[in-house]
Amino acid sequence: MVTFLNIVIAGLLLGGLYALIAMGLSLQYGVARVLNVSHGEFIMLGGLITWTLYTAFGVNPLLSLAICGPLTFLLGFIIHRTVFKRLLTSSESRGVFESNSMLASFSLLFIIQNIASIAWGPEIRGYSYLRVPVNLAGAVFGANRLMTLGFAVVIGVAFYLFIARTRTGKAIRAAAQDPAAAGLMGVNIDRVLALCFGLGAALAGTAGMLISLCYPVHVAMGLEYTVIALIVVVLGGLGSIPGSFIGGFALGIIGSVVTNIDPSLSLIAYYLIFVLLLLVKPTGIMGR
């Protein structure tokens, strides 16, 4: 029973992180129609900035959220304003824009990763913060991991409420459904798309901060997380934010179960689920 609980809690802890990174990607694809292959690079930036702030200046990692979040948001916002906005006007159809923007994001991956490697070098970085054991119904977990889950849930819910309840959220949903019509109804479409891209990047940056609490971070870590985010996003249905949230936890629990059987199989299990899901139900578990 304890092992079962152990597995489920470990799955939730992992799932919170997955949900967070997937929600960012989902927002970028669902609204801005950019399948952002460089998503993981924003995670890497968040992680490494947190590490620098903590080790060099002693800034509490949780406080560095106030720096990582806005910084990655701004970066994302500017990138959309310069790169993707131009592509949007020059592409003749949505399909062309989707493939062009995916390739552009691939070149962003190159650029961001290279700049980061100039700044931080190739070393694997880690630090110790809140690594105290906490007993949860007989199962023991690090406080840092529980913190991650707490943050992921709070941010996820806050984000959902933002999209569902606020005026800006309404504009975002309108833009996701029909950009042209939303534009006619007085939504500043360029601003909304850039906002979404920026928010997606900020979610990635935040996730990077949380990841650095539990795992070592390094310059080349991005792609792995991008791929996981992609899997979750497909699992939850491309572009569906609640789908990504639920999909993240689902994948976390699957990962935890498989890891319990054979740790080296977890990535294979992810891809297998991903591949099978695309074949059986490409619209995802929440898709219509």
Partner: peptide, 24 residues
């Protein structure tokens, strides 16, 4: 039979699946 971006994502995932399978 997968259309558009789904085919791209699938083939992208395929490479990773094979890589990790061979590794394992």
């Amino acid at each position: 039979r997968l259309k558009g971006i789904y085919f791209a994502i699938f083939t992208f995932g395929l490479v990773e699946l094979i890589k990790h399978f061979v590794l394992w």
